[in-house]
Amino acid sequence: MTQSPMDQSPTDQRPTGQSALIVDDSKAMRSILRRIVAGLGFETTEAGHGQEALDHLEAATAIGRVPDLCLIDWNMPVMDGYTLITEIRKRPEWRNVTLMMVTTESEQGQIVRALAAGAHEYVIKPFTPDAIAEKLELLGLVSKGVLA
């Protein structure tokens, strides 16, 4: 689990005070998502599987810094993303965390399951940066005009 510095570039949004936890077993995918989400003003942290993510959430809660957003892959070792969502949704203190799955699982049945388990949104890999930004706009985490 690593703390990622915010990427700096002229087009990046200023920090918004929001934070995101990126959960994926691929370093490359975490890197891609981190750049997209940091570019939208989020501070980011990463986890390589569901159990690491839970550990991070516990630690963050203890210091009063629960993330606003979790991006969650489905297929991961140790604990997969679906299980992670069910675990997160058991905890009232994490009720306001927005959960967005980012995964190759694209069968309709899988999407239905994830939404029923408590995922708020769902992005199918492959995706473009705009797709993530638009979903976050739908969720109200990113304000209009960011994409213009």
Binding site: Q108, I111, A114, L115, E121, V123, I124, P126, F127, A131
Partner: peptide, 20 residues
């Protein structure tokens, strides 16, 4: 395509209004 489906469509609408 699924890349097009990712663009601005709420997941709830995907499952309700589309079939694979």
């Amino acid at each position: 395509s699924q890349v097009e489906m990712n663009r601005g469509l709420p997941a709830t609408h995907l499952v309700k209004y589309f079939t694979r």
